[in-house]
């Protein structure tokens, strides 16, 4: 099941791969070249921090599985590397997030993240609800909102 979804995701992603952007299409504070120079100049960010940057979409430590964004926890190391490199080289377009955020990552960083996620348990999160004890206020009657 997991595998099927990953493939779906890559197929969807590859629609945009015909118009791979040239490096000079990048708008922003630095070029890709400058990015890689900075990456070389400083020690690599920790695998934890690099991987934690993915949490907002893929769930804490890559454990969330939702309709369209696949989980990363427990993913085979080589599979992770291959997918990331594929996004980086063949999907350098603005269709989805992955084709963009893989651009500045070094090979070393991708391997570090692959190692990290391979070590995470692919268990789903507990069923605990983030709002189980909320008393829903009567908005119309409230004098002041939550500010």
């Amino acid at each position: 099941m997991k595998k099927v979804l990953f493939s779906f995701f890559l197929i969807v992603g590859s629609w945009g791969s015909l118009n791979i952007k040239a490096a000079d299409d990048i708008i922003g504070g630095m070029s890709l070249k400058e990015n890689f120079e900075l990456a070389k100049k400083f020690p690599m960010s920790s695998p934890w921090l690099l991987s934690a940057q993915c949490s907002a979409c893929h769930g804490t430590m890559g454990t969330e599985f939702n309709d369209i964004i696949p989980p990363l926890a427990g993913m085979d190391k080589q599979e992770f590397i291959d997918k990331m490199q594929e996004y980086k080289t063949k999907d350098a377009n603005d269709f989805i997030v992955m084709g963009i955020i893989t651009q500045p990552l070094t090979d070393e960083e991708i391997v570090a993240m692959a190692d990290f996620f391979a070590q995470q348990k692919p268990e789903p999160w507990s069923k605990a609800s983030i709002k189980k004890d909320i008393v829903v206020p009567d908005w119309a009657k409230m004098k002041r909102g939550v500010e």
Binding site: A56, C57, G59, N66, I69, W125, A128, I130
Partner: peptide, 11 residues
Amino acid sequence: WQRTFRKDIFE
């Protein structure tokens, strides 16, 4: 993303 993000912060 919104759904996952809410869980990532509070769950």
